[in-house]
């Protein structure tokens, strides 16, 4: 009897949870559907949209008219480039703080975090002027530098929380067995650190890909990543629903897939280890 009740309850929860899930996901689903419709059909009523023919024409038009691939490539270069550069700087720092903690390690970590609280608009003017004077406006290298710096605190923190979980006893055991420092790093620490580094990489590519303050303010046409490219649809091209949908679908698809893989790390990374 009790079992039956719980089965009914499970069915009820299933219906409710799926309904909520689909409702939240619906705007994305609808965008994907519209991207496969013709421009004329995309603005019709929902019933007419669903029964209209499917077509790929919006995807080819977006590429032809606006060189979509260039902006896509810019997004890849900016997000991957800034993340790799960030890791290069952060791995040694996080490593040292986790394995050779000093009296001030905690203060340094907190201070790094505090730089993240600086509202970007507070330094918009000087950064714009620095970029203008050094010819960095609308260049990929300039944006890679900015994105690296704004995400550096998060990268250091994430790596630190991962490295700290590597047990120190393992190192001692390796040393007892006569491992040199080089062997220790290469064969003991690195394999244990790789998962943490990988999830840090993933989360930071996502954050950099979606960054929409500096990319909008410091780029024009040449170095504009997808965030800025899509913003150009705000008017009057926003009226072209099918093309906007196709451009949007292509812009969010890769990151959506990466994001689903990094769900667990997301909580940890964005709360600086406060919630696990």
């Amino acid at each position: 009897m009790a079992r039956k009740v719980s089965q009914n309850r499970k069915a009820l929860v299933t219906v409710a949870a799926w309904a909520v899930g689909i409702a939240i996901f619906f705007p994305i689903l609808w965008t994907v559907i519209l991207s496969f419709k013709s421009e004329g059909d995309a603005i019709k009523t929902p019933f007419e949209v669903l029964s209209a023919n499917w077509t790929l024409e919006s995807y080819s038009t977006v590429q032809e008219r606006s060189n979509y691939l260039r902006h896509f490539w810019n997004s890849v270069v900016l997000s991957v480039g800034s993340t790799l550069l960030g890791l290069l700087i952060a791995v040694p720092a996080a490593w040292a703080m986790a394995f050779v903690p000093g009296k001030r390690t905690k203060d340094v970590l907190m201070w790094m975090l505090s730089t993240k609280m600086l509202p970007p608009v507070g330094v918009l003017v000087p950064l714009y002027l620095i970029f203008r004077d050094f010819g960095l406006l609308d260049t990929r290298i300039g944006l890679v530098i900015v994105l690296t710096l704004i995400n550096l605190p998060i990268i250091v923190w994430m790596l630190y929380t991962y490295f700290r979980e590597i047990p120190g006893e393992i190192l001692e055991a390796a040393r007892m067995d006569g491992a040199t420092l080089r062997a220790e790093i290469l064969y003991v620490l690195t394999p244990m650190a790789v998962p943490g580094i990988a999830s840090t990489l993933l989360l930071n590519i996502i954050l950099a890909w979606n960054e929409a303050f500096w990319t909008l303010n410091l780029t024009a046409a040449k170095a504009a990543p997808l965030t800025a490219f899509i913003a150009s649809y705000s008017s009057p091209e926003g009226l072209f629903y099918a093309k906007l949908s196709a451009a949007s679908t292509m812009a969010i698809a890769p990151i959506l897939i990466m994001g689903w893989f990094s769900q667990k790390q997301l909580v940890r990374g964005l709360t600086f280890g406060a919630v696990k």
């Binding site: 939240i24 996901f25 705007p27 994305i28 965008t31 996502i206 890909w209 979606n210 929409a212 909008l216 997808l226 965030t227 800025a228 899509i230 913003a231 949007s248 812009a251 969010i252 990151i255 959506l256 990466m258 994001g259 689903w260 997301l266």
Partner: peptide, 9 residues
């Protein structure tokens, strides 16, 4: 899913 959609989109 919505968390991974860029703000402009």
């Amino acid at each position: 899913a919505p968390f991974f959609v860029m703000p402009t989109v």
